[in-house]
Simulated scan of single mutants.
Amino acid sequence: MTDEGVQQNAPEGAEPLTGGALTRARVLDAAARLLATVGLTRTTTKQIAREAGCSEAALYKHFRDKEEIFVRVLRERAPRLADAVAELPGRAGEGAVREHLEALVRVAVPFYRRSFPMAGSLLASPELLAAHRGKLGDAGPHQVGVHLAEYLAAEQRLGRVPAALDPHAAALLLIGACFHRAFLEVFYADEAPPGVLLPPTTEEFATETVRVLLDGLAPRA
C-alpha cells in the first residue's frame, strides 16, 4: 500500500503520519492484507516487513511479536465493533432503540466478515489461540454480548423494550445473526446461490433482523 493509502486509515482531521507512526501504520496495513490472504500461521514477520517496505528490525520497534500485530490489526483495521457496542449502554433513552440496533448490525457484519479470514488460522492453532486469549484478558469477544445486553436492560428499565424480553438472549440472537451473515458472505464470496443471502443487502438485513428481534414472531391480535 502507498503512503497515501496508509493516510486514509488515519482518523479524520488527524495530522498526516510521519516517521515511526507511518512505519507502524504501514506494518498494520501489510499485516491485514497478508492475514486475510495467507493466514496467520503462514504469515511471518519477515513477510510483513517486506510487504510494508521496512526492515524486520523496524517492525520489532513497534510490536513484540506476530500475535501482537494480529491483535492490533483487529482493533485498528477492522470496523470498530467493540467501541460501537461499548457506547450503547450510555445512550439508553436517546434516539430510537431500533436505530441503535440497526447501526450496530451495520458495524458488526463487516467486522466479522473481515475477521473470519484472519481468525481462521488462529483458531486452528491451540498454542496461538491460548497466547491470544491470554493477551486479551477480560477484553474477550464475549464483551460484545455483555455490553449489548446491558444496553437492552437499560432500555427495558426505561420502558422502551418489552419487559418480557430477556436482554442476554436477545443480545446473543442479534450478534449470532450478524456472525452467521458474515460467515455466509465469506464462505460464498461472490458466488452465493440465489436465495442464500436474504435479505440481499446489509442495510436490508439490519432493518429486518432488528424488526424481527423487537417485534417477535408471534402474530399480533
Rank of each mutant, 00 (worst) to 15 (best):
H62A: 12
L172Q: 12
A108M: 14
G90S: 13
K61E: 07
L88K: 00
D65Y: 11
E102W: 09
E99G: 07
Q47S: 12
L148A: 04
A149Q: 08
V85W: 10
R80W: 09
G95V: 07
I69Y: 02
K61H: 09
P126T: 01
V97I: 06
S55P: 13
F116Y: 15
L122P: 07
A84K: 12
H62Q: 10
E102N: 06
Y151K: 05
Q47M: 15
K61C: 01
L172M: 09
Y112E: 13
F63H: 05
L74W: 10
H100Q: 11
K135L: 15
A52S: 06
R106L: 15
R91Q: 14
A171Y: 06
I48D: 04
E94S: 08
R77E: 14
S121N: 04
A149G: 09
A163I: 03
R114C: 07
R77A: 10
V71M: 11
A164K: 08
A82P: 04
R106W: 00
S121L: 02
V85E: 08
R77M: 14
A169V: 11
D83E: 15
P89H: 09
G95D: 09
A103G: 13
L174G: 00
M118F: 01
V161H: 12
R113F: 14
S115H: 14
V73P: 04
G137C: 05
A84F: 06
R50K: 15
K135E: 15
R64P: 01
E150W: 10
R91M: 07
S115R: 13
A92V: 06
E102S: 05
L59E: 03
F111S: 02
C54G: 03
R72F: 06
R77C: 11
H147C: 11
F111E: 11
E94D: 14
A124M: 11
G140F: 02
G145N: 09
V73E: 08
